[in-house]
């Protein structure tokens, strides 16, 4: 895009600056729209699972429901509890929201369509997603209230537990791809199985960790069945209890942007990202961005499916799954994958 602005008569630095700003807006604004629609579609899905109708009043098929909710929240009064830590109370939702948007900078939407194609893309995503916990923890502490604080404690422990196994899973993928660059990982999946199927997930050695990554990403985004940070039956609404109005809306937007990011990561790391599922020329007629969005939506359907059907884990079960099952298995898988790659001379 830089060259496009250079053709308009700008010098390189100004063109780069304008192109970057334009790129950020081109990602962030459609993302907000996608979040609004994804909340709507998820409510429709849950309704279908529960044999209800779901939102069907505002607009055709209720498609404008999220926008009506947004407007309602926007017009509400912002309530700041007098016992809260005012500054941190207001910063917390902003942190959640900003961090959820930042990670999208390195996601390739199609071949070469990426805001920042950096060498350490995967590490960047890991770093940014590890920041996400601060929004929750700060919100829980700054509310100066009992249930939000419990929620913050749970969130901190939960995120750290599952980041460990996510780290090992990413190492397996990086070992196979030989690069931390996300576009490089996607390109390495081209024709991965017999030169035909474009996905790591069909590799028998990588399929188990693909499943583990899907489960871990549900835990990392604190989605059902791991939504202990906002368990309604125990903690009112967890860290969001004291929030109202736009601060509350920012938490929601941030949370769903994170869920979409995790779906995108699943699609990129194991299901071939923007590549068509099979290496067959007519499939390349469909642009890569369509394949990518289709994969994200498929992943999101699985997330909604799980949320609608699986009951919530107990806290000790959550910790057991993270530390006693996923950590040893993913550690063993790093051995297995690196041993296999050494044995077959993958990089020789």
């Amino acid at each position: 895009m830089t060259s496009f602005f250079q053709n308009l008569g700008m010098n390189y630095e100004a063109a780069w600056f304008t192109a970057t700003i334009a790129g950020i807006l081109l990602i962030a604004l459609p993302l907000m729209l996608a979040v609004a629609l994804i909340i709507y579609s998820e409510r429709k899905l849950w309704a279908a699972f529960a044999l209800r109708r779901g939102p069907n009043v505002v607009g055709p098929f209720g498609i404008l429901q999220s926008f009506a909710d947004g407007l309602k929240v926007f017009l509400q009064e912002t309530i700041i509890p007098s016992a809260s830590n005012r500054g941190l109370f207001l910063i917390a939702p902003i942190i959640t929201f900003t961090v959820a948007l930042m990670a999208w900078a390195v996601i390739p939407f199609a071949d070469g369509v990426v805001l920042s194609n950096i060498n350490v893309g995967l590490l960047y995503i890991l770093a940014i997603s590890s920041l996400g916990v601060y929004g929750v923890v700060i919100a829980g502490w700054a509310s100066n209230s009992k249930y939000p604080f419990y929620s913050a404690m749970r969130a901190a422990a939960q995120m750290i537990s599952y980041e460990v196994s996510i780290g090992f899973i990413l190492i397996c993928v990086v070992l196979w791809a030989g690069t931390f660059n996300i576009s490089g990982i996607v390109e390495d999946q081209r024709g991965h199985i017999f030169g035909v199927i474009n996905a790591y997930a069909f590799n028998p050695l990588l399929f188990p960790i693909a499943v583990m990554f899907l489960i871990s990403s549900m835990a990392e985004t604190a989605r059902a069945p791991f939504d202990l940070t906002e368990a309604e039956s125990e903690l009112v609404a967890g860290y969001q209890t004291e929030y109202s109005s736009m601060a509350f809306a920012l938490f929601w937007l941030g949370e769903y942007a994170n869920v979409l990011l995790m779906c995108a990561l699943n699609a990129i790391l194991f299901w071939g990202g923007y590549l068509p599922p099979v290496e067959w020329a007519p499939l390349y007629v469909v642009p890569g961005i369509i394949w990518f969005f289709a994969k994200i939506l498929l992943m999101f359907f699985i997330f909604a499916w799980v949320k609608a059907t699986v009951p919530r884990y107990r806290y000790d079960q959550l910790m057991r799954l993270g530390w006693k099952i996923f950590l040893p298995i993913s550690l063993f898988w790093v051995f297995l994958v690196s041993g296999y790659l050494m044995f077959t001379g993958h990089f020789a």
């Binding site: 350490v120 960047y124 890991l126 770093a127 940014i128 590890s130 920041l131 923890v137 995120m159 750290i160």
Partner: peptide, 13 residues
Amino acid sequence: MLLVIVYVGAVAV
């Protein structure tokens, strides 16, 4: 990135 992952993401939490 390691600085952020290790110190911000784990130690500081």
